[in-house]
């Protein structure tokens, strides 16, 4: 599965995601609203789909793209990353300052 952070690292791709998030749409509708080709939009959608950010539903001959709004899960993952980073920093800071206080140079 494509990394979600990689998927949103490209500004054009973020614009594609924003357009999809605004409402279900086809590749053509996205390309119409942006200065990029349909082929390029398709490539961006592929990566967004692989990252789980966008889903596709066939509608006749068209493919309709939709943002996956399993928001709570995304939010939890983001907060988990954030707090994990904070706790690791805390451990380093606390242990270093304790050692420094216990064994003054």
């Amino acid at each position: 599965m494509t990394d979600v952070w990689y998927a949103v690292s490209d500004s054009t791709r973020r614009q594609v995601l924003a357009r999809v998030a605004a409402g279900p749409c086809s590749v053509g509708e996205i390309a119409d609203a942006m200065p990029v080709s349909m082929a390029a939009v398709s490539q961006h959608l592929k990566i967004l789909r692989e990252a789980g950010l966008v889903s596709m539903t066939p509608a006749g001959r068209r493919r309709i793209y939709q943002a996956r709004l399993e928001g709570l899960a995304e939010l939890r993952a983001e907060l988990e990353t954030y707090w994990t980073q904070a706790l690791h920093s805390f451990k380093q800071v606390a242990e270093a300052s304790y050692l420094a206080a216990k064994e003054p140079q």
Binding site: V8, S9, R14, A18, T81
Partner: peptide, 8 residues
């Protein structure tokens, strides 16, 4: 997008 960028 910026939020995700920062977390990345």
């Amino acid at each position: 997008g910026i939020y995700l960028e920062r977390f990345r």
